[in-house]
């Protein structure tokens, strides 16, 4: 009946008021502040010029034709296909017909692309600067404090997560150090922000980074050559097989209602 020895550490109750609470409050406030800073720093999405819109939507039109061709009669599908393929091959819809066949310019030299990169940098800075400051603040004032005890047992693997800054090997995993509390709040406050700021806030860095994974993963990223896309689509249209959905619809309908 050897019960594990329960470690007891007598903590000053002031620890709660002077470390745990301040860290939490500061983290929440930084998140809110960051949200508003991001809202301010965000530049309005740049408007596309008319030729660009035309280029993109013409490509979508071709894709629509390919995807939904079965509503068309064979003759009108053939007519459309012939038109689209020849227009694509001639580059009729290109925003910049002169630039056809030329290599794409370096994105770094394109002012529009630079702006996007700058926006990303701004976002990163708004995240990194306060994080650095707060971590420095916690390290300077509260390092080495054990501030709370979790009410449930944990496996020793959590030691590095919960007790960073406290170099004691035999301490029970349930004790949490101040620096670890900082990390926990850093990653775990998203629901709180959702509650305060609404669901599409930009307070947390984790969601921010996920958003940056695929910037403009749309149809026509700036890196892709529209001419190549058009030629590709023309080829797809050329080889596609057409089936008319209205063929035999009357028999289908009768069969459906006679049964």
């Amino acid at each position: 009946m050897a019960q594990p020895i329960v470690q007891t550490i007598h903590r000053d109750p002031a620890l709660f008021w002077w470390i745990l609470l301040p860290i939490t409050v500061v983290m929440v406030l930084t998140g809110i502040l960051r949200h508003y800073a991001m809202t301010l720093l965000q530049s309005a999405p740049k408007k596309q010029a008319l030729p660009q819109i035309r280029q993109q939507r013409s490509l979508v039109r071709g894709m629509n034709l390919r995807a939904n061709a079965n509503v068309l009669t064979p003759s009108s599908f053939q007519a459309r296909k012939a038109y689209m393929v020849s227009a694509y091959q001639e580059g009729k819809f290109l925003a910049d017909p002169e630039g056809r066949g030329k290599p794409r310019p370096n994105p770094m030299s394109d002012p529009a692309a630079m702006e996007g990169i700058m926006g990303m940098m701004k976002g990163n800075m708004a995240m990194m600067v306060p994080q650095t400051l707060i971590m420095g603040w916690i390290n300077a004032f509260f390092s080495g404090f054990v501030i709370m005890k979790l009410p449930f047992p944990l496996t020793p693997q959590f030691k590095s997560m919960l007790q960073s800054g406290v170099g004691t090997r035999d301490l029970d995993v349930r004790w949490v150090s101040s620096l670890s509390w900082y990390f926990l709040t850093l990653f775990g406050l998203q629901p709180v922000y959702n509650f305060i700021l609404g669901s599409n806030n930009s307070a947390n860095q984790v969601t921010q980074q996920m958003g940056q994974m695929n910037p403009g993963a749309g149809l026509m990223g700036p890196e892709q050559d529209p001419d190549k896309l058009f030629l590709n689509e023309a080829e797809n249209l050329e080889v596609m097989e057409h089936r008319w959905i209205l063929e035999g619809v009357e028999d289908r309908l009768l069969a459906k209602f006679s049964s």
């Binding site: 009669t73 064979p74 009357e250």
Partner: peptide, 19 residues
């Protein structure tokens, strides 16, 4: 020759009308 599909059969159309 220039038609997309043969016109529907008379009986089919009659049935459709009834339906």
């Amino acid at each position: 020759e220039d038609e997309d599909a043969p016109p529907p059969k008379l009986e089919t159309v009659k049935k459709l009308e009834e339906l």
